[in-house]
Amino acid sequence: MQLTINGTAHEFTGDPRTSLLDFLRDGCGLTGTKKGCDHGQCGACTVLVNGQRVNSCLTLAIMQDGHAVTTIEGIGTPDALDPLQAAFVRHDGYQCGYCTPGQICSAKGMLAEAANGWASFVSDNLEGQVELSAEEIRERMSGNLCRCGAYSNIVDAITEAMQAEKVGAA
C-alpha cells in the first residue's frame, strides 16, 4: 500500500499496528512530527491528511492508503519560512519547541477550515462568515497543548500570519 507524504510516494509494508505517527517518524525519518501523549490529547502529532488536520497517533498508517499527508517538513523551508513559521519565530510562539510542529500544522488546518466557513463552539452564528478572533483561535487550537505555556504568543503569531495572508490576498 502506498501513500504520499509531502508530495513523495512512500510504500508501507509494516506491522498493521503501526500508527501513522510511528510510520512518519520511524519508517520515513520525518521526525518533525512529535509524539507527546500518543492518545490524541496533546496535538503534538498533528499533520494534514488530504488537507485536514488530524492526530497522526490515532490512525493507522495502513488506513491512509492512497491519501496525501503533509507534515511540518512539507511546510516552508529554512530559507523560505511559511508565514506561520516566521510569525511563530517573531512572536516567540514556543519555548522548548516540542509542540510547535503540531501547532503549525494545526494552525494551517484551522485557517483552511475558517476560510470554508466552519463555525466553532464559540461562534455566535453558525452560518455567518468566520472571523478568527483571539477567542476563536483559542477554541479552535484547544487540541494543541503547550506545556511551556506560550499560548498568548501562539495566538499573536497566528493572528499576525492570518492578517499578513489577508493583505497578501487583497
Binding site: 498533528t46 485536514q52 488530524v54 490512525t59 494545526s106 488546518g109 484551522m110 477550515e113 461562534s123 487540541g143
Partner: peptide, 12 residues
C-alpha cells in the same frame, strides 16, 4: 458536535 472533542478529532 462542536462542543465535543477537537477539530483534529472531529476531522476523523
Amino acid at each position: 458536535i462542536l462542543a465535543g472533542a477537537t477539530f483534529q478529532l472531529r476531522n476523523m
